[in-house]
Design a protein around this nucleic acid. Structure first.
Lengths: 113, 113
DNA sequence: CGGTATCCCCGTGGATACTG
DNA sequence: CAGTATCCACGGGGATACCG
């Protein structure tokens, strides 16, 4: 959150790695890819995450400029999250990761036979 | 190292994330991409890493089946590391990470102006 | 509903010293 | 040269409880 500045001048790959290094960052991305979601929706979509963790991870991604957080001044409160433009550009990376992951899993299975 | 098994049946993206989650895994990949390297060479190429860390990260990647470790029975010892086939297939992911990282860095710079 | 505020565990990463 | 063997600090991650 305060190391946004320390990212500058660093290797692009290292920068990218930092962003996705959070345990839940990628899962959040995946769920936000299909469209805008409310806090409660995300929590239901991501089993095992606590409120505190979801909040902090969302704040972190927001700090990186990857997601939008929109608060509707209503009672009860309503907050919506969505990917920013640069956030959307991360999707190809996710696809790439997914492709390799699939290849790797089938490779491992064939190895241990 | 012993969670190779726990990877099976998991989401491909999660699997991929685990592999690159080590602090030095990606750097090692980068340096091995350009060809086979000896232990000492890697250590020189990766400033800031200790012998102990380099050893354990290499062992981890070897355990995942991503790199080859070849020991030459000589005195003094000589050990060479290289990417395996499935290891080489990871390169596109690295490229993808790099592309996005570059986009992100220039985006941030234009933002904070 | 969508958060803070605390407290704490434990695993990753690292410093250092020794060895075949 | 290429490792082990110890020991330890730190912070990410999580459980729980309370709030506007």
């Amino acid at each position: 959150m305060d190391d946004n500045l320390s990212l500058f001048g660093k290797c692009p790959v290292t920068t990218a790695q930092k962003v996705i290094s959070g345990k839940w960052a990628i899962v959040i991305f995946y769920n936000l890819y299909s469209g805008t979601k409310r806090f409660g929706e995300l929590q239901k979509l991501i089993p095992g995450i606590t409120q505190a963790m979801l909040t902090s991870q969302l704040r972190s991604l927001e700090g990186y400029g990857l997601i939008n957080r929109v608060v509707y001044p209503e009672v009860p409160p309503k907050v919506e999250y969505s990917l920013t433009e640069i956030g959307n550009k991360f999707i190809p990376v996710l696809k790439s990761l997914e492709n390799w992951g699939s290849e790797y899993i089938s490779y491992i299975k064939s190895e241990k036979k």
